[in-house]
Design a protein around this nucleic acid. Structure first.
Lengths: 144, 144
DNA sequence: AGCTGATGTAACATATAAAGTAACATCAAA
DNA sequence: TTTGATGTTACTTTATATGTTACATCAGCT
């Protein structure tokens, strides 16, 4: 498949909502910033809403973060939009009659879990507020 | 796309070669253990050979690890078989005329690099020898 | 030398998931 | 009531992984 940009686009949406909180927050406007389409934006916003990160109102372009950007981690967003949150994938079709095929799946799962654990810990350490600060800092550096 | 099993299958191949080093190591036999096909096994072995982890000889089913399994990390294997080694992907098509779109790519790259760094460190900490030990331990537990 | 069976590699087909597109029901606000 | 928004679904397109086939090349044996 193509590589997923869902995490990146979801963070983009949340950052946009936070930065332009009193501006035009229609899915079409946000889609223009993402260079994507309104339906994708609405789909991602739906996932963010179900995860409790965003409130929306049907018929009204008024999305809002449910809490401060300092209290939203990249892990929160990742879990909201990536249903298979696994970074690495075990081949679950190996020969059970072979010593290697019969035992490698559980062994690898254990190994991959360690990778997943540290990656998620790192995602948890980074907040939406930091991303927003990074965006604004870069912007100001360019326009001064 | 489908999720990649290349890392898992490559580790499988290396473990198989190490465990059955004096047995039948034809791509067809290994493919039977992976429940895949010989061409895939040969493709992955080609990548492992180019990465310096394995030696092979055309015409002869005699693959060998180039060094002890304790000196081959999962990161070595990962880099050998995953050409795009990035676990997370920035959306590289965002609107440069928007403050968010123009600056989020670099900001996210920085954030994702941190995740990549800790994940790779964890992959580096785990060796092929540990995977082999895990496979054999599980096997012995079942057959005692 | 020739036969057999192996690898190396490429071309093509298929499967799967992401993202794009379009349509429409529903709701908000004027 | 009209306009324009969201929520959601179905379908299409695209990208990547894997499967399949074919065949050139090589090793090892007789």
């Amino acid at each position: 498949m193509r590589y997923s940009h869902k995490l990146s686009d979801a963070i983009h949406i949340l950052a946009y909502v936070a930065i332009y909180q009193d501006g035009d927050l229609s899915s079409a406007t946000i889609a223009a910033s993402v260079e994507s389409n309104p339906a994708l934006v609405r789909r991602l916003m739906g996932a963010l809403r179900r995860a409790g990160l965003l409130t929306t109102q049907q018929g009204s372009a008024t999305p809002k973060l449910t809490r401060d950007a300092t209290a939203i981690t990249l892990l929160d967003v990742y879990r909201a939009v990536e249903e298979d949150g696994n970074l690495l994938h075990v081949d679950d079709k190996t020969n059970p009659k072979c010593v290697v095929g019969a035992n490698i799946q559980d062994t690898l799962r254990e190994a991959y879990d360690e990778v997943q654990r540290v990656a998620e810990a790192q995602l948890k350490r980074q907040t939406l507020a930091q991303i927003i600060a990074g965006i604004l800092t870069r912007h100001h550096a360019k326009t001064q």
